[in-house]
Nucleic acid binder design. Structure first.
Lengths: 332, 332
DNA sequence: CTGAAAGCGCTTACAG
DNA sequence: CTGAAAGCGCTTACAG
């Protein structure tokens, strides 16, 4: 074995005094009944002595598989996607798979597809919070979509955001709220369309209920402005239902700027239950969605798909966390 | 070409009526002067027609290089690391490199090294916010450390946290503060040791200055408790210098719980300037560190290293952002 | 129980 | 200007 470069299976074979086939069999764990225990022992010893680690490129080429999965997310700076990635990696690691995160569309570079990337050596795709047709052109690569429109042909793992939103409406109507403002994310994603739909239907079913809506970017300044528009309208809402926790932070700021106290003068709700929700004062009433679990379940689903099975659609609950930002309206 | 599987360079060669070598030369962009323009044209056409994409595993095996870099971070759920990854990916993509993120130590699985992972096919390592010796056992793999102790033998890219902390002290002393409380992150990382050191020295140099310290986890509840300890001590500080923006959020909560108004009764500063800093009310005075730029510069440094050069240590500024959470102390 | 051989898909000397 | 051949390091029939 040349001292300069890493040892190969051939080196191990030589060191153990056996053939390369035997090394492969032993190290691949397929030796029982085919190789004598003594020989297996000596192969393991030789590999250990040499510090042998198989060359993955060669393995991939031979096997036609890379044991790598690509997680496609719209951004990694939003607090939601870190946990998704973490959950996916946890499950992948248990099965000897790696995960490459890919941000797409890429605001930096040209809007080329993930497949223009060099690390295209991938067995499957996990795509989170993307349009249904975002994966067009990927035909042939097994894929699972997360937090996306479940009506497509690809297996999905998502949250029951409708149910979460219904719980918000029930909570608020129980408190006595009727005039509701929706600070909506101006982002064309399935989850936000679902949130808007569920809220609209919930308020429609509420006797005496009325709904106003303002749209903003998922960003504090923009959210603050949208919330302020709602709060300064002729017949202002007594509660602001926000599409996202960060938007709720903007709503807090609009309230303070107008001299309104949360929750005595104005109730506010969020969505997602990211770190921020409990960092705010008062702590935010919001719908918790298990992002890390979605990543984990998504990876399990993809692994089943790669295994040739037909995994079912999976839906995780969105559960309301009642905290300090909601209370009965001050005056009817 | 078999209709069932993807086309190879051999298929392209056959389609264009040339040899595999010519295809490789043309598609690799090394053909000028060696292949006639007409032939090159026909190769490109054939590749396009067949939808050819080179097999990366074969390429890696042949070249002994994977054009993939591993970014090792302690967590992806903290808001700081998303931008680091994003910056690294941006630069990597420009050079035809991919980035795999690897969370380590892995709180989930067993504490094995990143190299136990299957996707070990990597050309270099970018390690952020880790102990100097975290990369022991990686000897041989080119590595760059980010946000870490610069005294090791590996090239580093970091922030000038000492300078940032000095700016905090100058700002506070200019406002008239003398009794300073440090809500410190109880995390054994170089950056936090540097922050504590710079703060201690700054206060020591301040006439009449005094410093008390409480340690906590980087988490709102723990930070709130630590801040409360400081604020309920006999001679409480007039300002809380927090090691992290999330810790500052905890300090806000402790203040409110004790009936203190920020900034009139108590000033608070943070560190990092993550999203949260401007979501809080009042907005947080904090030291901004350019996380995304660190990721980008780190990747450039690693690329230089892979290129056989000896890149210099790089230090990015930490700049104080004065916002609404600091003011003159109410009474001396 | 063990080994020799083929071949995965590329790229790069080398020969012409 | 173009092609035939070798070889990167693995795994898996196949032969014995």
């Amino acid at each position: 074995m040349p001292a300069t470069s890493r040892p190969t299976s051939k080196d191990v074979a030589h060191e153990a005094g056996v053939s390369q086939s035997t090394v492969s069999l032993v190290l691949g764990g397929k030796w029982t009944g085919r190789v004598s225990p003594a020989t297996a022992r000596s192969v393991h010893d030789a590999a250990e002595r040499l510090g042998y680690r198989p060359n993955q490129a060669a393995r991939s080429l031979r096997l036609g598989t890379t044991r790598t999965v690509m997680l496609v997310v719209p951004t990694l700076t939003a607090p939601f996607f870190g946990p998704v990635y973490t959950g996916a990696v946890r499950v992948a690691a248990r099965h000897g798979f790696g995960v490459v995160a890919y941000v797409w569309p890429d605001d930096a570079g040209p809007a080329d597809s993930p497949f223009a990337a060099p690390h295209e050596a991938i067995d499957g795709i996990l795509a989170s919070s993307m349009a249904v047709d975002a994966l067009a052109g990927f035909r042939g690569t097994p894929a699972v979509m997360l937090d996306s429109d479940p009506s497509g042909s690809v297996p999905t793992v998502g949250f029951d955001v409708e149910d979460g939103m219904r719980a918000v409406v029930a909570h608020l109507s129980g408190l006595g709220h009727r005039r509701v403002g929706h600070v909506a994310a101006g982002v064309d994603q399935w989850t936000f369309r679902a949130r808007a739909r569920a809220l609209t239907e919930g308020i429609r079913a509420l006797p005496g209920g009325s709904l106003s809506r303002a749209t903003c970017a998922i960003e504090v300044g923009s959210a603050k402005a949208a919330a302020a528009r709602l709060l300064t309208s002729p017949d202002p809402p007594t509660v602001l239902v926000c599409d996202d926790d960060l938007i709720a932070a903007g709503a807090y700021k609009a309230a303070r700027a107008l001299g309104l106290e949360v929750p005595s003068d104005l109730s506010v709700t969020g969505f997602d239950d990211v770190l921020l929700a409990t960092a705010l004062e008062p702590e935010l009433t919001t719908v918790a969605v298990p992002a890390e679990e979605m990543g984990a379940r998504g990876m399990e689903t993809l692994l089943e798909l790669l295994d040739g099975r037909r995994p079912p659609r999976r839906v995780l609950p969105g559960v309301l966390k009642v905290r300090g930002s909601t209370a009965a309206p001050a005056h009817r």
